[in-house]
Computed example of a mutant assay.
Amino acid sequence: MNHLFQQVYKQKPVGFLYSLILLAVLSGCASSSANPEGGAPPVTALPVFKAAAVPASTHREYNAALEGKVNVEIRAQVDGYIDKIFVDEGAYVKAGQPLFRINDRPYQEQLSNASASLLAAQANEEKASLEVSRLTPLVDNNVVSDIQLKTAKAAYQAAKANVAQAQAMVSNARINVGFTLITAPVSGYIGRIPYKNGSLVGRSEAQPLTVLSDVNEVYAYFSMSEIDFLQFKDKFPGNTIAEKVKQLPPVELVLPDNTIYPEKGRIETMEGQFDKTMGAVSFRATFPNPNGLLRSGNTGKVKLSESFAALVVPQEATFELQDKIFVFTVGDSNKVASKPITVSGKNGAYYFVAKGVSAGESVVYTGLDRLRDGMVIQPQPISMDSLLKARPL
């Protein structure tokens, strides 16, 4: 053909026009020979699968703040200078172990003073008792007036009251002496210690001596939005929220480095009302912490999983148009039609379909960019089982 065109180009103008017409005729003949039937292009063969409901699972993650099961602020209950700090920050202590000692000399003196006052009060009580014993027979024999006996008995009662008051002062002084040695109320880990030896501390200090955390179990506090909470109410059995919480499956904790904490936890409680400012309600999950990996103040994500039977469609069998998700289904005469679907969730490479496609309906798997509504294809069946084996849910 190129050789013929070169020959035509060398000819005169009239002959050149004639030759162009001849080339057009020859080209038409060549096209007819390439597609002798002159009909539609050949039918495209594309893989097609039947949508099916399969066991699936999905999960939601909620940001969580971790706290020890017991977080105790250790505070001074008497005023004084710190004489001794027995522990270091981050140390593990057992219940009853000494933590701080406050100078106890002023309180020992108060105890000595109170003890002396008690002895004096007891002596006065004994003296008043003797006076009552002396006057009783004299009154009985009409030697003295009974007024003197009544006065002696009143003095005895006052002396007894003074003894009780003195005993209370001694007990109070002993308690204050005991407060100078601060011990751990529970077993746990010591937090930051902002004070040093010689620091003046007391009950009026805003900052505690330290915080002691019992982290054998850890609480993870997280919040659900109102929408998530309404979905939660519908998904799990039970007549009350408490019953629904008991039916929740174990939850996982995703650590800040995206690893999964090895121990599973359980959701135990939820708050009684929504936070008006956040529009959310708080839940509490409990995780065992036998190795002390988790500490108060850690963060993470509570991962709540849900198992169900769902109609699944691979994501590559879908396309998006104007914020909607579509698939191509195969109908009569192998004609394709686009259908919008409602996605309730996703897991890996699959969408969970709530509406739009029915179980057993044929869906085009790949090659969607070549399809238009009404086109005829040649289906190449593939099973959903083979897709799930290649890429499990």
Rank of each mutant, 00 (worst) to 15 (best):
303 K>W: 00
253 L>R: 06
256 P>C: 04
278 M>A: 15
256 P>F: 00
211 V>P: 02
307 S>H: 07
204 S>L: 15
220 A>T: 06
225 S>N: 05
214 D>F: 02
221 Y>I: 09
248 L>P: 05
283 F>G: 12
194 P>I: 12
222 F>E: 00
286 T>I: 15
220 A>K: 10
271 E>K: 10
295 R>S: 10
239 N>L: 09
201 V>Q: 00
277 T>L: 15
227 I>S: 13
206 A>H: 04
252 E>Y: 14
270 M>T: 12
280 A>I: 07
263 E>Y: 14
240 T>F: 08
240 T>L: 04
209 L>C: 01
304 L>T: 01
304 L>Q: 05
244 K>V: 06
198 G>N: 07
235 K>C: 04
283 F>R: 14
268 E>R: 04
226 E>S: 04
215 V>L: 05
202 G>H: 07
189 Y>L: 12
224 M>G: 09
213 S>R: 02
288 P>C: 13
223 S>Y: 06
191 G>V: 12
255 L>H: 01
276 K>S: 15
293 L>S: 09
268 E>K: 02
227 I>T: 14
255 L>D: 01
276 K>C: 10
219 Y>N: 11
269 T>Q: 06
241 I>Y: 15
246 K>I: 05
216 N>I: 03
295 R>C: 00
225 S>A: 02
239 N>P: 00
279 G>R: 11
247 Q>Y: 13
265 G>W: 07
244 K>E: 05
201 V>L: 01
219 Y>T: 04
